[in-house]
Design a protein around this nucleic acid. Structure first.
Lengths: 151, 151
DNA sequence: CAGGGTTGTTGGTGATACAAACAATGTCAA
DNA sequence: TTGACATTGTTTGTATCACCAACAACCCTG
């Protein structure tokens, strides 16, 4: 197997695994009436208290997309808009208790849903797989400088 | 690190990698005016000639979603509907030359976009990562039997 | 051949995402 | 200090995505 072939096989595996994981996340989200993006928002808000624009950047979405997204989640009581004292233009987004509770449940659901898959590896293999994924993940890829596109 | 912790860390890594990969695929698709789903359709049609219902099952989508999806791709000349001689109800979906060409370009773009990430591993590590992903991926997870949901 | 199941489409609805235009606020140079 | 400019988030309009229910055309079995 050449170096290029190993890269091809790896990319194939990564892409396939991505689709499978997204399928699981989509299903779990749907069971709680959450889109993939809303699921992700809750995950982020678990650890952070970003402003709207931060959230948009983290998700790779337009600001205007966030408005509606946050509207709907706020209406459901999962998060709240909060005025920023240092800058009156800024809107901070904060998770609510109900949102945190749901996020925890979702996290457990994901763990459980993936258990049959991760369980096919023993503990040392799991550790090794996680370690091998690390360098692939950092730094983030989504911000890769776009190659020049004509048009 | 306990066995549960290694599972947690692995799931985290898999989920994060999934979001990163999807981000890359979304960006590359967008550069060619293709949604993630259309990207996936082209990928499938590269190797298969499924009927509408097969495609819906492969993608985990409703049949009615496929109609519009295939409509738009067909209008762009990327694929074509083809009557099935054995069953007049059935519509086979076939990729066109233009579609195959685009699919090849997309595949290369993905390889290139992920090269900086996979390149952080040397060839033996890449091989090992691909091998460790294999058991996690098979059999497919998306068809995991849904746990009973009340309501 | 009649009844029932399959296959794909249509129509209706809501969510997602973008771009452009906008009001409110902040910043900085003259 | 003020006036020009930039930033932040929302609103509006449009296209896509995805679901469900209803439907026509077709297949199959008794």
């Amino acid at each position: 197997m050449t170096s290029e072939e190993s890269a091809d096989a790896l990319v194939d595996g990564l892409v396939r695994s991505a689709f499978q994981i997204m399928g699981v996340l989509t299903r779990i989200g749907a069971e709680h009436d959450l889109s993939l993006t809303q699921l992700r928002v809750l995950g982020i808000l678990r650890d952070q208290r970003p402003r709207m624009s931060d959230l948009a950047a983290l998700l790779g979405l337009d600001k205007s997309t966030l408005s509606g997204l946050i509207d709907r989640a706020e209406r459901r009581g999962l998060l709240a808009r909060s005025a920023n004292p240092d800058d009156k233009r800024v809107v901070d987004v904060v998770i609510t208790d109900a949102g945190r509770e749901l996020a925890g449940r979702l996290y457990q659901d994901v763990q459980n849903a993936l258990a049959p898959a991760t369980g096919r590896l023993d503990a040392p293999q799991r550790r090794q797989l996680a370690e091998l994924l690390e360098p692939v993940l950092t730094p983030p890829l989504t911000l890769t400088p776009r190659p020049a596109v004509q048009g």
